[in-house]
Amino acid sequence: MIYSHKRNTTLGIQAQLVNPCGNSAMPVKKKRKSSGSDDPGLRKCKITCFCRPQAPGRLISPEDQFSNKKCLAWFYEYTGPDEVLGPEGMEKFCEDIGVEPENIIMLVIAWKLEAPNMGFFTKEEWLKGMTLLQCDCIERLQGKLDYLRNHLNDTIIFKNIYRYAFDFARDKDQRSLDMDTAKSMLALLLGRTWPLFPVFNQFLEQSKYKVMNKDQWYNVLEFSRTVSTDLSNYDEDGAWPVLLDEFVEWQKARLAAL
């Protein structure tokens, strides 16, 4: 609007200097060559640069949109009349997406669905989690597997998954994990990243412990992240569970005997 107002004002002044017959009412000075800033063409370019149209966004076709109906139909392919995806359906689900049931990615999927019980997904959990992932078919979930695997490389997200695993894996009438389940879950979560895991697992096998409580479980992760493999920086006066104190003593005695 600023540019339009300037142009109208200039035209009005020119009209006052020209008589109705078209002759000049006063001598007309020779026009100076206009500078680049007054050139109409350049002025038009300036206006255009402020009004450059935005490229239209890509339209999402109906086929690309997440469908609740399609997602539920996919869920019912694995369920029985009780509308719960159980162990048998879980086996077929794993086969369809090309993931072994023991693969850690299945734990990540369960975490995304906020499923409290190992081996079971309810309709509500399925719909909530798959909506979050925007997956309503096998192919879409397969396309998200790398994204889900990358969660394991994020320190904070991995800690959340690790803590989730304790309640996910334990019997709901027990407050602790039985030791066999604890060892299996630790192998799944830490076996590929913690150099001391094989030794720690050996310690658990010969120890008196039959269960692992939540405090012990949480501290094993902290131990694996902060204590060096030679145990030289382990603080015996720190607030570690007795389980880990005993592991350090056992491992040092074992190394001394070599």
Rank of each mutant, 00 (worst) to 15 (best):
Y3L: 09
G12C: 13
I13A: 15
Q14D: 12
N23F: 13
A25P: 03
A25W: 07
V28D: 12
K29Y: 10
K30H: 07
K30F: 07
R32M: 09
R32Q: 14
P40S: 07
C51F: 11
C51L: 10
R58D: 12
I60Q: 14
I60M: 15
S61Y: 06
S67P: 05
S67F: 09
K70H: 14
Y76A: 06
E77L: 12
G80M: 07
E83M: 12
V84T: 08
L85Y: 02
M90W: 05
M90T: 06
E95M: 13
I97N: 05
G98L: 10
I104F: 01
I105Y: 02
I109S: 01
W111L: 05
A115Y: 03
N117C: 13
N117P: 02
M118L: 10
G119W: 03
K123R: 15
E125R: 09
L127W: 05
K128Y: 08
M130C: 10
M130N: 08
L133M: 10
L133P: 00
E139P: 03
E139S: 13
H151Q: 06
I156M: 07
F158E: 03
Y162N: 01
Y164V: 02
A165W: 00
R170A: 04
K172I: 15
D173Y: 14
Q174E: 15
Q174D: 12
D178Y: 06
A187Q: 11
L188K: 09
L188A: 09
L189Q: 02
G191Y: 01
L196S: 04
L204N: 02
Q206S: 13
K210G: 10
K210R: 06
V211A: 08
M212K: 02
N213I: 03
K214A: 06
D215N: 13
Y218Q: 12
L221G: 04
S224T: 03
R225T: 08
T226M: 06
D230G: 02
D230I: 01
L231F: 05
Y234V: 01
Y234E: 00
D235T: 03
D237L: 15
P241R: 03
L243P: 00
L244Y: 01
F247G: 02
K252C: 09
K252P: 02
A253H: 08
L255S: 13
